[in-house]
């Protein structure tokens, strides 16, 4: 069981203050990251099977679609 962001502290506030061009703004995003989660994992099948690790070449590209 996991309870994340218990105190709702993950609110992002962006402040822009550029006196050089007389620009001032304040933006607030509440991502709603408070989450209660129950996880159960179960291993099945033959545990003696050897794992094969083949490197994927597309890890960088996956990060670009986030």
């Amino acid at each position: 069981m996991t309870y994340s962001d218990m105190f709702n502290g993950m609110i992002w506030r962006f402040i822009t203050d550029v006196p050089e061009i007389n620009f001032d703004s304040y933006t607030q995003y509440d991502w709603g990251t408070r989450l209660f989660k129950i996880t159960y994992s179960y291993t099945f099948g033959n545990r003696k099977l050897k794992e094969v690790d083949v490197r994927s070449g597309s890890e960088d590209e996956r990060k670009r679609v986030q």
Partner: peptide, 11 residues
Amino acid sequence: LSHSDRVRNST
């Protein structure tokens, strides 16, 4: 040009 304010996270 901007900066983000401090954030806290607890789990």
